[in-house]
Each structure stands twice: as C-alpha cells, then as structure tokens.
C-alpha cells in the first residue's frame, strides 16, 4: 500500500455509550486536513452508523480509516454473526435489532441504507457465523 494515512480504532462492543467515539476523532483529523464540511458530515454519519451496528450486532470490532488528499476509505470489520441476506438488510426500515436497543432509539433499520446514501462507494462482505466487513469510500475533489 502506498503512502496513506492510517488510523485504527477499537470499537468497544461492551460499552454502548462509547459508540460513535471513533467518528468524532476522525472528524477532527478531517477538519485538520481541510476537507469540505459536507464531506466531513457524510463521513461522520456513515461511520457513526457503522460503529453503532458493530456494537449492536457484533460485540464491537475494528474501524480503520485510510486517507489520501483525495479519498477517505473506512473499513469496518467485525467477527459477529454476519448478515444472512445483504439485499434485504440494505432496505430502509429492515432491522434485526433487539427490543432493548430499539427502546434506546436505535435499530430503526436505517443504518446500512444511510451508510450507502452518505458514501460514494460501499461494499459489504459478510459470511454468516464468520463476520462482516464493510468498506466505505468517499471521494474529495
């Protein structure tokens, strides 16, 4: 891999309150680099949704952010239960979140659709029983 800035974050699955911390830290890096406000917002929303998903479904995971002056790539990797039907999961409003999570206002079935909506490219690799890796790409011009 050629010169890319790399930031790694452990997304702590045991601590629901800490979900979203990585996206806050990434936001600061993006501001320091002078990315436009709209892009920063898209990255932070998509990454936040990804973090929440990892906490709800997979007991946490790893978030890796790779930066170049032109592109932001976010890789969210977990060893959770995997997604049975990715196409179904991508539909707005489809959710498998448990009731206790829904009672907190999460699990509305907008996580994956929002990640798709706010990123320029999104790939989902998931194997049931093995885990899920989601890659989000954002282009800055």
């Amino acid at each position: 891999m050629e010169d890319l800035l790399h930031y790694h974050y452990d997304v702590d699955g045991g601590n629901f309150a800490s979900a979203g911390e990585a996206s806050v830290q990434v936001k600061r890096v993006l501001r320091q680099m002078g990315f436009p406000p709209d892009l920063i917002r898209r990255v932070s929303i998509a990454m936040y949704e990804g973090e929440i998903n990892m906490v709800i479904h997979a007991k946490g995971g790893d978030a890796d952010v790779y930066l170049s002056p032109e592109q932001i790539r976010v890789v969210l990797k977990d060893v959770g239960p995997g997604i049975k039907d990715v196409a179904l999961a991508m539909q707005e409003g489809y959710s498998t979140a448990p009731d206790n999570i829904r009672s907190l206002g999460f699990g509305a079935g907008m996580g994956l659709p929002n990640m798709k909506r706010y990123s320029d490219e999104m790939t989902v690799e998931s194997t049931v029983g093995v885990g899920t890796t989601i890659t989000l790409v954002f282009n800055a011009f």
Partner: peptide, 20 residues
C-alpha cells in the same frame, strides 16, 4: 477551520504523516 494545518490539502496530508 481554525484547526486546519495548511490551506493546501496535500501539504496538510504530508504534515499529518509527519505528526503520526
């Protein structure tokens, strides 16, 4: 941005590399 390292993003990027 008050936090921006340099108005030129390529320069900011190099600085971020050095910071790391």
């Amino acid at each position: 941005s008050a936090e921006i390292l340099n108005p030129d993003r390529a320069t900011s990027f190099r600085m971020m590399m050095q910071i790391a």
